[in-house]
Design a binder for these strands. Structure first.
Lengths: 211, 211
DNA sequence: ACCGCCTTGTTTAATTCTTGACAAACTTTG
DNA sequence: CAAAGTTTGTCAAGAATTAAACAAGGCGGT
């Protein structure tokens, strides 16, 4: 792929495009123009056309874009045509909620193992999986080769585990721990999720909108 | 406050500043320079100074910023010096996880009620709260005047409830439903959280970093 | 109390991102 | 089959964001 460098702004919009195209498809749309999509998404048509053009020419003049085709193209760009095996660390409230709430398969991942340090949780079932002890991680990784991990464990634990996980072959972290995970390894990806920050932003909006 | 218009980019960084300042404070830092903070946060010192200057002059030349003082100032900007009463709709996995995982008080909110449509969940306890029936929302709002709501319910339910909630006085939504909530009312704030999009972004990073 | 060093607040410049404009090309209709 | 109407891909202009530069002012050591 001769993508010189896709800007971060564009990348952040891709999942949203994918989501809207899925909705359109579900509602029976066969074709969509940039103008119409822009209206639905609250963007400009120009931006949409320019975003898509980073990756190729998916549309047809005079017609627009084929919804299913475009969705498939963007899905491929996002890597959703394959599934990266993933493990979950931390089977507390949040870990369990994610495991049952997220559609991993359609997001490019396959959740294959859940681990927790608390012996009381080990052995409990979460969906189709059984919680294992953190002591079993190494063996599990050797055998099943997961390449991504969700971190739903306390900060101290996360800071300790990350290097170990990388050495086991993990090269992507979805981090819900309350700190910004930063990794020096070149090809390890990190997505920090800060729900607290999101809520704080809402607080700001409330307290300034009406002045 | 004579803020002509704070850019969205700045606002999105504020909660992160607040978080880092809290960490610094906890680690015994009394003062911090923009240069040092920039290094810790992976930003430029220039950006930090410019961001803070949107709201006033919090630093001192030759010294830097007082950690506790700056944190308090940013907290005030974010509206964290007061607590907006908030209710949770949906006591499923995700709703319960948020209720127990999020430090509402330190994010400018106070969770005072939980509601669910499922009769089996009504009456169950979540932390210090008891799940109520959605039928009781109106009465509860009239009595306790919540001004914010978390949406952890299915899309169809959310689309139906939102207008009703606004009419009851809710003017901020933290939306975890799988669609972009858009509200026409002028002073209703919405923060859409798409965990799926976040995970999808991670998929993209994995599948493009190593080419 | 003075001098040198450091750091802010602010101005200016560079870069990035977004929007507008338009020719080329396809679709649809008569 | 031709003409009218759309819509894309792309280029160029305009905003917005980020980074660099620097004068002014306070701190700390002597």
């Amino acid at each position: 792929m001769a993508k010189s460098a896709i800007s971060n702004s564009v990348i952040r919009r891709l999942p949203r495009y994918y989501r809207f195209l899925g909705d359109l498809e579900a509602n029976g749309y066969v074709r969509i123009s940039s103008r119409e999509l822009a209206e639905k998404m609250g963007l400009t048509a120009s931006q949409i056309r320019q975003d898509f053009n980073c990756f190729g020419e998916f549309g047809q003049q005079g017609y627009g874009y084929n919804v299913t085709g475009l969705k498939a193209e963007i899905g491929k760009i996002l890597g959703l045509d394959k599934q990266t095996p993933m493990i979950l660390l931390g089977a507390g409230n949040l870990g369990r909620a994610l495991a049952s709430h997220i559609d991993f398969r359609n997001r490019g991942f396959d959740l294959i193992g859940v681990f927790d340090a608390n012996p009381e949780l080990v052995g409990k079932r979460i969906g189709e999986l059984t919680v294992m002890s953190v002591a079993d991680i190494e063996g599990f990784c050797k055998e099943h080769k997961p390449e991504a991990a969700i971190l739903c464990i306390p900060r101290e634990a996360a800071e300790k585990e990350v290097d170990r996980l990388i050495s086991y072959g993990i090269r992507a972290f979805w981090n819900f721990t309350h700190y910004d995970l930063r990794v020096t390894h070149k090809d390890v990806a990190v997505e920090n999720v800060h729900l607290g920050d999101s809520l704080t932003t809402l607080s700001y909006c409330i307290n300034t909108s009406d002045e």
